[in-house]
Design a binder for these strands. Sequence first.
DNA 1: GCCAACGTTGGC
DNA 2: GCCAACGTTGGC
Length: 152
Amino acid sequence: MRYWLMKSEPDVYSINDLERDQETLWDGVRNYQARNFMRSMEPGDWVFFYHSNTQPPGVVGLMTVAQSGVPDPTQFDPASEYYDPKSTQDNPRWQTVTLRFLEQFPTMVPLEQLRQTFSEDELWVVRRGNRLSVMPVDDPVAEKILAIARHS
DNA sequence: GCCAACGTTGGC
DNA sequence: GCCAACGTTGGC
């Protein structure tokens, strides 16, 4: 079981939306590094839900991977902003995962606190200029985030 | 709203 | 294959 972190702008899709839906297909990722991380996810992995582009940004809850290796349906849809004409049903370029709601933290762990607690190498999301929306989180770091989230 | 960071595109 | 131009992300 591995830990991950995935970003979403809450205006687009928030932890509350996931709590309502319980399960969601994480579509629209069009970055190869992020896709490769999603390819290596396995059912049962835990994923921190991070709210980006909001005030303040931070980790707001926890999800678990339900299915991995799922072709992103938006790549086949000409009406979608994520349409990829180079992708075919036989050879899809973009795989994603479905995620299930686990918990919403009583209070978010804000980016500022993550910065105070972890170095750039320990937790990539605190890296200045970081734009990657899917990233791995090492076990000790993940356990510390959980401890902070559940203690406050 | 600004702008630094950085991924992608496309001309050459 | 280089790299300038461009577009997007995301903190502030």
